[in-house]
Design a protein around this nucleic acid. Structure first.
Length: 592
RNA sequence: UGGGGAUUGGUGUAACGGUAGCACGACUGACUCUGACUCAGUUAGUCUAGGUUCAAAUCCUAGAUCCCCAGCCA
């Protein structure tokens, strides 16, 4: 028997996680029967409520559920759990569809069951509710929300309702009146008749239906009676033939209720029963939701950030939303890989956000074309380079991908280098440019610094240097033995001053300063990083001029950047997805 | 105070009574026309206390810590 599985995107074998173990055991025992092709049935779903945008935590669930379908030849449904018209909007529906399709790669690799709505099952659910009333397992309760709260009981003290022994016929009539719109919001509820004394509060006669006179984004004004999560969810799963209903840990206490509802419908059902055949009973399984350091994942908090304009929108590249990550330059494959790497268990944990960043670095390193752009320019004048002379040099587009080939870059007398690549009095181990020191300009020439020009305030405004014509292409001259005659430690990126184009670059830092936002003061806003966005004007490689929104590049030595949709002809905007790893930054920080 | 869960290196995750392994990070070093990538090495762990057993992360007992539950939210 196999004890490994494949990464969704490829190669490395890996241990089975607890969900995969369950699926394999079920497949071995034939628990769920077979699909049309004769394979053991595996059917999962992702059931968001359309009351907000999807974030990286949802990505874990999407990858998990679609990944299981992919691994075991099963199917995967996207289903909107739209049971509360007061909170849900079409805008969210549209955004969620887009994000799920983007993340899963257009449903590649598994059978996409389709897009479903809980609200399209309302009639079926209603019928089952009447059945439960007639079986004596549900009753209409006239208590107000406030009264129910008061009568909920407490630990060791049972709840009470004067209506739980109401005659089923009366309940049924009342329930039909509720549906007919004869009562205002909150006047009555339908409650399951389970156990008012249960130590598990979710079993203390939970509400199944409440009255909400409000238009629904999907069903319009067809209903004023809306099902609660517990009643609705198990039925949605059942109707769709879901086998493994995977949800987060906080629903553990709800599992007995999930099972109770299905079992109650199945009570007295079977061949020849007046109620009909038994309905499908999926298995709910809980897993630990994703937590990330320096990140807040709650929908209402993210909504507040948007509403209070602390970010530019749901897709602000600093947001942990899927659309934010997309705009930031994250690829679907990198997010999938991340979700696969962190695993899935029933123990709560917090993942270092650095792992997400590593995932996108890994992916982009293999695919992103390289470009030389200078974020914070410092002019260098090559004193022995003739005025007006132009040289065209070969530039390797992606060393990780030989197939990407080369292109030309233009070298002239005046170039820009990164300000941080020059030190007048170099620190220890600083092997970039400094007076008297020689460096390589990538793919171009060796240059040696001959001096600096300062303005009245003493600020360095220009660096003077000479180049060595023998080093054209960036190679040191070789001796007769084939060995380079000299070596330079530093290689700098650069751009011809005359050819560079100016553009806006947006540099992002973490949205929060604290590893666990809100831990200190109880208010997550207190840990909001006021400097999470920096906009600068940079000197960019001219090839960027024609780049489309969403295109991703590596700025050599500086990081990965992605063209923002705010770009206009002649006014390009780039987002820094993530920096490259920077050992020197660490050395420098340690040295100060 | 009732019920339901969870505790393995810094972090995350394997082990399913039989050698505590892997990944990430950190640290060394090699390589390098990106201080990137890549490669090699080092680092460090079973919540505690008892018990069962030839043998315990795993089984038993007691305790500790953390999380969830008293919405007409999901």
């Amino acid at each position: 028997m196999s004890d490994t599985a494949r990464h969704p995107d490829g190669e490395k074998p890996r241990h089975l996680n607890f969900l995969e173990q369950i699926v394999e055991a079920d497949n071995a025992s034939g628990k769920w029967g077979q699909d049309a092709q004769g394979h053991p049935k595996v059917h999962t779903r992702f059931p968001p409520e359309p009351n907000g945008y999807l974030h990286i935590g949802h990505a874990k669930s999407i990858c998990l559920n679609s990944g299981l379908a992919r691994s075991y030849g099963g199917a995967f449904n996207l289903r909107f759990d739209d049971t509360n018209p007061a909170k849900e909007e079409q805008e969210y529906v549209d955004a969620i569809i887009k994000d799920v399709e983007w993340l899963t790669g257009g449903h590649a690799g598994y059978r996409f069951g389709g897009i479903f709505w809980a609200s399209s099952y309302f009639e079926r659910m209603y019928g089952w509710a009447e059945e439960l009333i007639q079986k004596g397992l549900a009753y209409v309760c006239d208590l107000s929300a406030e009264e129910v709260g008061k009568r909920r009981g407490s630990i060791g003290v049972p709840a009470t309702s004067p209506f739980r022994d109401r005659d089923p016929a009366e309940s049924l009539a009342l329930f039909r009146d509720m549906r007919a719109g004869k009562f205002p919001n909150g006047a009555r509820t339908l409650r399951a008749r389970i156990d008012l004394a249960s130590p598990n509060f979710t079993m203390r006669d939970p509400v199944m239906y409440r009255i909400i006179h409000e238009s629904h984004h999907h069903t319009g004004d067809a209903w004023c009676l809306y099902p609660m999560y517990d009643w609705a969810h198990c039925l949605e799963d059942s109707l769709e033939g879901i086998t493994h209903s995977i949800c987060t840990l906080e629903f553990r206490n709800n599992r007995p209720l999930y099972d109770w509802f299905i079992d109650s419908i199945n009570k007295d059902r079977g061949p020849g029963s007046r109620w009909g055949e038994r309905i499908h009973h999926p298995q709910q399984i809980e897993f630990a939701r994703l937590n990330l350091t320096y990140t807040v994942m709650s929908k209402r908090f993210l909504l507040a950030l948007v509403k209070e304009a602390r970010v530019s929108g749901w897709d602000d590249p600093r947001m942990p939303t899927i659309c934010g990550l997309r705009r930031r330059g994250y690829t679907p494959a990198s997010i999938r890989r991340f979700c696969d790497d962190i695993g899935v268990t029933t123990q709560e944990s917090t993942i270092d956000v650095g792992r997400l960043e590593n995932a996108v670095r890994d992916d982009l390193n293999k695919t992103a074309p390289r470009v030389m752009s200078v974020l914070r320019p410092l002019k260098v004048v090559i004193e022995n380079w003739p005025e007006g002379k132009i040289d065209e040099l070969d530039f390797v587009i992606n060393p990780e991908d030989p197939g990407a080939g080369t292109r030309k870059v233009t070298f002239t007398r005046e170039i820009y280098i990164e300000r941080e690549d020059f030190m007048e009095t170099p620190a220890k181990k600083f092997f970039r440019l400094a007076p008297g020191q020689e460096v390589r300009l990538r793919w171009a020439y060796f240059i040696r610094c001959t001096g600096v020009v300062k303005d009245a305030s003493g600020e360095i405004v220009e660096v003077r240097a000479t180049y060595d014509p023998e080093t054209r292409g960036g190679d040191a001259p070789h001796g007769p033995d084939g060995q380079p005659l000299r070596k330079v430690k530093g290689t700098l990126h650069w751009i011809s001053a005359q050819h560079a184009i100016k553009g806006e670059v947006r540099l992002f830092d973490r949205l929060f300063n604290a590893e666990e936002p809100g831990k200190r003061t109880g208010n997550q806003l207190d840990d909001l990083n006021p400097n999470s966005l920096e906009r600068i004007e940079a000197m960019l490689d001219p090839v960027l001029a024609g780049a489309a929104a969403g295109a991703t590049f590596q700025f050599e030595r500086m990081g990965y950047f992605c063209v923002d949709p705010d770009s206009r002809p002649g006014a390009i905007v780039l987002n820094r997805t993530v920096t490259l790893k920077d050992t020197w930054a660490k050395v420098g920080a340690a040295g100060t």
